[in-house]
Design a binder for these strands. Structure first.
Length: 104
DNA sequence: CAGTTGACGGCCC
DNA sequence: GGGGCCGCCAACT
């Protein structure tokens, strides 16, 4: 199990209509300090067809400027299609953040 | 092998 | 409240 695969596993576990922050994915993957590695991992996204990287946003709920399959506009569309409101490229983390038992 | 980069996060000013 | 700097780890060259 590579570091990347662990990250991908968490990303794929993000439920429908929910988003998670890079740090959150990093924490679930094993280390919260992998925040940057998470970004890199999604950047190389080997299987975007099964890895919903569009559900991953920054801690502020902001979307990525670069996207694996289409661009940030594509990401907004996909999120809104799941019921996630995207305003000015930002998601309301207070409501759409993936509720994980992580840190507590 | 060593240096730089990067889809981030947190603290300081 | 907004902007900027440093730190984190792994991958790339």
């Amino acid at each position: 199990m590579n570091t990347f695969e662990r990250i991908y596993e968490q990303v794929k576990k993000i439920p429908y209509g929910r988003v998670a922050s890079y740090g959150q994915i990093a924490a679930l993957a094993g280390n919260r300090r992998w925040s940057r590695v998470v970004g890199y991992a999604l950047h190389v996204n080997p299987d975007p067809d099964h890895i919903p990287c569009y559900r991953v946003v920054t801690k502020d709920g902001k979307l990525s400027e670069a996207f694996a399959f289409g661009g940030i506009n594509r990401q907004e569309g996909l999120l809104e299609a799941e019921g996630v409101k995207v305003t000015d490229g930002c998601v309301d983390m207070n409501r759409f953040r993936w509720e994980t038992p992580w840190i507590g």
